[in-house]
Design a protein around this nucleic acid. Structure first.
Lengths: 187, 187
DNA sequence: ACAATCTTTTGACAAAAGTCAAAATCGACT
DNA sequence: AGTCGATTTTGACTTTTGTCAAAAGATTGT
């Protein structure tokens, strides 16, 4: 979602609300292969991706990288657990491409809740959206085969297919690298 | 979580807060095989399970019942999507055993947000917990085999093993009925 | 341009999980 | 206690997915 367009209508933000909000966000750029957040760090920023692409991942007990999310342009990055609860992140969030973001610090966001009360509702709604996404994702694992999950991924994120390593997609949909390669070959 | 014990310390609820809250909740009983919520209905209640057991499920495109959650004593039932966004539920929530709940209606809960502001924070935290649970669940699907997912289920919900049909567990962990039976046999 | 490195594909095989149908077991109800 | 229906197990078989290692193909930096 784009802060400037997206929220104004829906939440009836005033000129002042918007000014407060805009003043809270600052630009940041991250080069490919650099990190927005590393494992062990407490996430101090929410990021809105204006350009580029990132992914989040962690290491499982066999030290495989498991990709948990992609963040293309238009995505909002919040490491919910770490940001909200001020605990070290278990995930890395890494730029796959050179990336530009608008970020707001934890403290500034807390201020924003008071300055612009509509932000409480916005964040509640964002939480709802997140929960909805995750329910869908779980459904996929409960009901679909690897091939179907890949098909669904292609339908939902066609832009990503050209932009990310297949290995990232493989772990994202929960299949082995070689298996994904074979799934792609037939058809 | 238990409303009376659990929230007081953490959120510093006053006598009055507690009174408002208690007054908002009413008792309800649901006999085994009856519904807390049906597909297509808008969820009008949050329920706190004091006794018994329920599960939520939906039908996939091959008309299989897919169990998405269990709600034993101490669980809070919120059909997030339906309750928060006032849209028809895609899930059924059914009592597996004779069940007793404390419920609060949508309207009363909305009032409670105003009457007892701490409820905003409580619900935010509940959302966080929900998100955390779902992240864990996704991780299981991304990184564990069926056998490992079953093992994890046993570790996490030992009380449920004796109380629910294996078929419910099978769909919950995303394996075929017969496969689960075989997983259980060896070891 | 060309190593050096990373990704992806492929082959041969093994293990895991699904399918379908029948049998065994369990449970609820009269 | 006995019957009906639902649940669970089992057998025989197929399909899907994983594993490991090597080859082929891309990509990056100098």
């Amino acid at each position: 979602m784009n802060i400037t367009n997206w929220s104004i209508d829906k939440y009836g933000l005033t000129e002042e609300d918007i000014k407060h909000t805009m003043d809270s966000y600052v630009s940041q750029t991250i080069k490919a292969n650099n990190f927005f957040l590393k494992e062990g760090e407490i996430c101090n920023y929410i990021g809105y991706v204006t350009k580029g692409l990132l992914r989040s991942y962690f290491y499982d007990d066999q030290a495989n990288e498991i990709t948990t999310n992609f963040f293309p342009e238009g995505s909002l990055i919040i490491a919910m657990d770490s940001f909200n609860n001020r605990v070290p992140s278990k995930e890395f969030i890494e730029a796959i491409e050179d990336t530009e973001l608008s970020v707001v610090s934890y403290q500034r966001q807390m201020d924003l809740y008071k300055l612009v009360p509509a932000w409480n509702q916005i964040c509640k709604d964002l939480g709802d959206i997140k929960i909805h996404e995750m329910l869908k994702r779980n459904e996929s694992f409960q009901t679909l085969s690897a091939t179907e999950r890949y098909q669904k991924f292609c339908d939902e994120y066609p832009q990503l297919l050209q932009r990310v390593n297949l290995g990232y997609i493989a772990s994202y949909i929960g299949v082995d690298n070689a298996t994904l390669s074979r799934i792609r070959k037939k058809k």
